[in-house]
């Protein structure tokens, strides 16, 4: 019985999230647009996340290189290390790890911010002040997430490859030019484009789920914590689901 009600609640939740997403498109496509708030959110969501994304990407580049090197040395293809790391980072590791960190930082912050605004009646106050709170709070944040995450992924990939260069040079003496030549010789358009496109979907998922959880927060301060927590959990799972779908679509187009 409990399993059945849990399943019903799961389906209802998905239905509400879908309806919330449709509402985003309805409000987002109709003027007036909240440009000032959108730019502010791009700064907060994009620029302010860069140090964290950059640091984790740099460490990830070093660690990935150091983990791969022994196996590649065993097969006698150690010289291909920059190429393999570049493909792994650009196609999969970079977008997914960046999106997961983004979900942890931005998804939770949006969930908590909107949740706290909901329970302290700030969203109602906004509506009374002649503002469409959905447009002002949700549309701007979801758009900023959708547009900023691909930028962060690209920057994160680049920083990660600088980390990889350091990782390669811990054991061998590879010149800067040789490293980057190997990276770019082996990366093709088909590696970069699918990863770039799926980053938009990751960003949209983090934004819409964070806003949905926060906007529908209830049960006071306890509800705010739950909103922040479930925003991270659900958007992290959603990132993997989108990644799974993306790889299927990529394979269809033979990338």
């Amino acid at each position: 019985m409990s399993l059945r009600s849990d399943f019903t609640a799961f389906l209802n939740g998905n239905g509400e999230l879908f309806s919330f997403s449709l509402r985003f498109f309805r409000h987002g496509l109709n003027p007036p647009f909240e440009f000032a708030e959108f730019i502010k959110q791009c700064y907060v969501i994009g620029y302010k996340s860069l140090p964290l994304i950059g640091l984790t990407a740099f460490i990830m580049g070093i660690v990935l290189t150091m983990q791969l090197r022994p196996s590649m040395a065993d097969y006698g293809v150690e010289s291909q290390l920059p190429a393999i790391v570049a493909i792994a980072v650009v196609r999969e590791v970079g977008p997914v790890i960046t999106a997961l960190i983004f979900a942890g930082k931005i998804g939770s912050s949006i969930g908590a911010e909107l949740g706290s605004m909901k329970v302290t009646e700030q969203i109602d106050a906004m509506e009374v002040s002649g503002t469409n709170p959905f447009k002002y709070l949700v549309v701007t944040r979801v758009l900023a997430c959708t547009l900023m995450l691909p930028v962060l992924v690209m920057l994160g990939d680049a920083i990660s490859l600088y980390g990889a260069y350091l990782g390669v040079n811990i054991h061998t003496n590879t010149s800067f030019n040789l490293f980057w030549t190997q990276v770019f010789d082996n990366l093709v358009f088909g590696d970069v484009l699918p990863a770039f496109i799926k980053s938009f979907f990751f960003g949209f998922a983090v934004g819409i789920i964070g806003c949905y959880k926060g906007y529908n927060s209830s049960r006071g301060t306890e509800g705010v914590g739950l909103s922040a927590n479930s925003a991270v959990v659900v958007s992290s799972v959603m990132i993997f689901i989108i990644d799974l779908l993306a790889v299927q679509v990529t394979n269809i187009f033979d990338y």
Binding site: T120, E121, Q122, D124, A125, M126, V128, S129
Partner: peptide
């Protein structure tokens, strides 16, 4: 409308809180 919880926008200064309805209406 004076809300029970005051509903002041936490992320804005007092000036911005007061400017908000003015700018909107």
């Amino acid at each position: 409308f004076l809300f029970q919880s005051n509903a002041l926008y936490d992320s804005m200064t007092v000036r911005e809180n007061l400017e908000f309805p003015l700018r909107r209406h």
